[in-house]
């Protein structure tokens, strides 16, 4: 689900322009910060540019070349940090680690010999503000926006597929082939083969009654009790 870094060639407005914000889908700009250089991977810094942060993504747009810019969703930013250690990087910066699209390494290697920059393989991005005193403010905004973007997997994939008998494994294997979490790649071991259908049925019944709502209250109570 991580999309990694993208090239941005389209802009809104005249002159240098600004990023195209998807306001229809609730995207809003949080910060515009001029005078920022960008360092992708181990490449040399690119500047001058302007950093734009929305509640969904980060842009860096070149101030001189309207066709040059990069963007990355907060969902793809797996880590961000304030880096002030000159041994790590000469200029104080926001360091980000970028989760790249899940691709088979071998597949990528076969055509990666070209010199062109393959943005989808960039795993590190540094943003270097001209004024280092702004780093803590930038870090705080990054944190705020990252928290606004929890992984969809957290909410939608919260429930496990419980496997009770071996003959379910084959079906699952086919279904999961294209999913991001291909768990049952080699269902060679018929483990869990107890074939206990009654057990499965009782799970079904448990899930559709309303006991869960009672849990929620209980948990709140627990939380309160646990912190007083």
């Amino acid at each position: 689900m991580a999309t990694g870094l993208r090239l941005v060639t389209e802009r809104a407005g005249n002159g240098v322009g600004k990023p195209v914000i998807d306001t229809d889908n609730g995207e809003e700009l949080m910060l515009v910060h001029p005078g920022v250089s960008i360092v992708l991977g181990n490449r040399p810094p690119e500047f001058p540019g302007t950093l734009y942060i929305s509640n969904k993504q980060i842009w860096w747009l070149s101030d001189t070349d309207r066709a040059k810019g990069y963007a990355v969703d907060f969902l793809s930013v797996s880590l961000h940090a304030v880096s002030r250690d000159p041994e790590a990087y000469p200029s104080p910066c926001i360091f980000t680690q970028i989760e790249t699209p899940a691709v088979d390494d071998e597949l990528v290697d076969s055509d990666s010999e070209s010199e062109t920059l393959n943005l989808s393989k960039i795993t590190q991005m540094r943003l270097v503000p001209s004024d280092p005193s702004q780093l803590n403010m930038l870090f705080a905004i990054f944190c705020q926006c990252a928290e606004l973007n929890p992984d969809p997997t957290e909410e939608e994939e919260s429930v496990h597929n419980w496997i009770f008998s071996a003959d379910q494994l084959e079906d699952e294997d086919e279904e999961d082939e294209d999913s991001e979490w291909p768990v049952f790649q080699n269902p060679t071991h018929p483990i869990g083969a107890n074939g206990n259908h009654d057990l499965a049925h009782s799970v079904f019944q448990l899930q559709i009654n309303d006991q869960r709502f009672e849990d929620a209250e209980e948990m709140e109570q627990y939380d309160k009790n646990g912190h007083q």
Partner: peptide, 27 residues
């Protein structure tokens, strides 16, 4: 065995039942 692939329970009889369990998550 568990998989996070989808919010789906798989039963021995071969049918599936999709459940949104947001409230489970919250707890």
């Amino acid at each position: 065995l568990s998989s996070h692939a989808s919010a789906t329970f798989v039963f021995g009889f071969g049918f599936r039942f999709e459940i949104n369990l947001m409230f489970v998550l919250l707890g």
